[in-house]
Structures are given as structure tokens and as C-alpha cells.
Design a binder for these strands. Structure first.
Lengths: 146, 146
DNA sequence: AAATATCCGACAACTTCAGTCGGATATATA
DNA sequence: TATATATCCGACTGAAGTTGTCGGATATTT
């Protein structure tokens, strides 16, 4: 079905939420989870991955939580998804290790990798700020160009 | 990880194989499966779906099998994938039924659906004939890496 | 010291995917 | 007509991934 995982969805929602906060105001995992009805412990682990991936900055202790590590305009949906789900490949064969030893004449792969590149570009063009702003105007322009 | 299923891969390989056959020459599921090391029964079911989806024409009996229902240039990778995996949605929420009742303020969906449209266009632009044509030389280079 | 919150691994329930099996129907050939 | 071939179809199993939970360790503020 080629769909994005819920974790990625949750991550995008959370990052967008952080982008709408007044600057230097941290949000805890619990706070965001409750706001959107996401399981707290699950979102906590997602935010940890985003922090580990350098997209968020974490702060321990009372009134701690997460803040964006960069301006919202410099964070793309692709970065968020990759930090949560790992490298993004549309083909089922090529992951990290060698597979596909069975089908020597598989010419399907190369054209699909170009589709993969197109997808990465499309996801990279969607910034977190574009999710918050009007969620329409900017993206419609870029959507037409792709 | 947002990857295509093996079934879709198998389907693309099989359709491309059929596209390379001399006209009006049918190939059986068993024949194709053995040529690429794909489990016979599995490929059989995939080809049945493609036939049901109107992309292939099936022929019972001895020397029967499958042939393309249309010229290879008029069959896209998107059609093959959709016939096998069903409708293609990148977002995890929107499928056929209404979900996402929890998050009312979810502005993530709309920009991602445009990414989805981009992906569909990219997959639609990849025709089966394009899998056969240019790939020969190029893929043998990459074939060593597989 | 206490409350808060990130961090981390292990685990269970659930769903999907990949592959298998048995059997029914249809067709060409001898 | 008999036989071999091949599509067709549903049900089933095992593997793998997804989703969510739990317990506990560490860090920080009050």
C-alpha cells in the first residue's frame, strides 16, 4: 500500500506543533501527546529519535521538553521522516545489504530509483513552516513545479 | 520504511517479461516464475490480479498463459502497482474509511497528499516499455552491485 | 528531597506480508 | 473422451513489521 507509518505522522504533527510555539518555549512529550490524542510513551520515543537525529533539542527536568534545533523553514518533512523511519527506499530489494541474488536480469530497479529520487525531492520541498503557515499557498506553487 | 512490496516487484518483473515476448505469445505463470526464481504459486496469484485488473489477458489450457492487454507503452508502473496493492496513499490515515478522528487540527495531511500526487505522477510516467528499452546496458552495470 | 521529564531496552498485541496448499474450472491436444 | 496443462480461488501458516506498553535509569528544576 506504500504508506507512511503512524510514527512518521505523529512526528510531523509534533514537529509542526513545536514550530508554532513562541520561541524558546519547550513542550514535553506528555503535553503534545495529550493535545493530539497520541499515546504518550510512543510519542516520547519518536521525539527521542528526532532529538538524536539533530532536529530537536531536549531539555531534562521540570519545565523541560523539546524545542526545534533549527528554524521551521530549514526542517523538511523528509528529514523528519528519515529520522524516524530510517533511510527511504521505494524498492523492496535494495536496503542496506545485498539481496536480489535470485533475479539477475532485474531491470525494474533502476527506473524505480528515479521515482524514489522524485519522492525524496517532493518530501524535501515540504518544510515544517509550510505545514504551519497557510498549509496551502506555498505548497501549491511547489506542487505544480514538481 | 515506505517501500514497495515484493508482490509489486514481482508483478513489474513479470509484466516487463511479457512485454519482451514476440507478439501474441503467451507465457505461463510457472514459466515466468522459474525464469526469475519467484515462487510459482505466489506469482500465479499476482498475475491473476493483473488479469482481473484488465492489464493482462489470460488463456486457459495447454500453451496458455498471459499476454499484455495493451501495448507496453500504454501500461504504467502505477497501474501495475495499483492492481496488485490497491489504491496508493502515502498518508497512514486516509484510506477508504474515515479515521483520524482524534486529531482535529491535523494540518499535516493536506501537504502530504500533494506529495502523494507527485509520486503517482512519477510512477505513471514510468511505462513498461521504458523498463525494457533503455535498461539493458545500464542495469548490467548496476547488476554487478546487486 | 521531590517532582518532572528525557532516555532506553525489552516486551506483547496486532496487522501485514510472503509463501504454501488443496482443489475447482477451462482449454488444447492426442 | 481422456489427459495434460494452466488459470482461478480461498484458506491457511509462518515470518516480519507496526503499534503500543511497561519498568526503570538518568538528568534537572524547584
Amino acid at each position: 500500500m506504500l504508506r507512511l507509518s503512524k510514527k512518521a505522522d505523529y512526528g510531523l504533527i509534533a514537529v509542526r506543533h513545536l514550530a508554532e510555539q513562541p520561541k524558546h518555549t519547550a513542550c514535553s512529550a506528555k503535553e503534545i501527546a495529550r493535545a493530539y490524542g497520541i499515546p504518550t510513551e510512543l510519542l516520547a520515543k519518536i521525539l527521542q529519535k528526532l532529538a538524536k537525529g539533530g532536529l530537536l533539542v531536549s531539555q531534562h527536568g521540570t519545565n523541560g521538553g523539546y524545542t526545534l534545533a533549527k528554524p521551521a523553514r530549514e526542517i523538511s518533512a523528509f528529514e523528519v521522516i528519515r529520522a524516524i523511519e530510517g533511510p527511504l527506499f521505494i524498492t523492496s530489494c535494495v536496503t542496506d545489504k545485498r539481496e536480489c541474488s535470485q533475479m539477475t536480469r532485474c531491470t525494474v530497479r533502476e527506473p524505480l530509483q528515479k521515482v524514489n529520487e522524485t519522492l525524496v525531492k517532493a518530501l524535501s520541498a515540504v518544510t515544517i513552516s509550510s505545514l504551519s503557515d497557510s498549509s496551502g499557498a506555498l505548497v501549491q506553487i511547489e506542487g505544480g513545479a514538481l
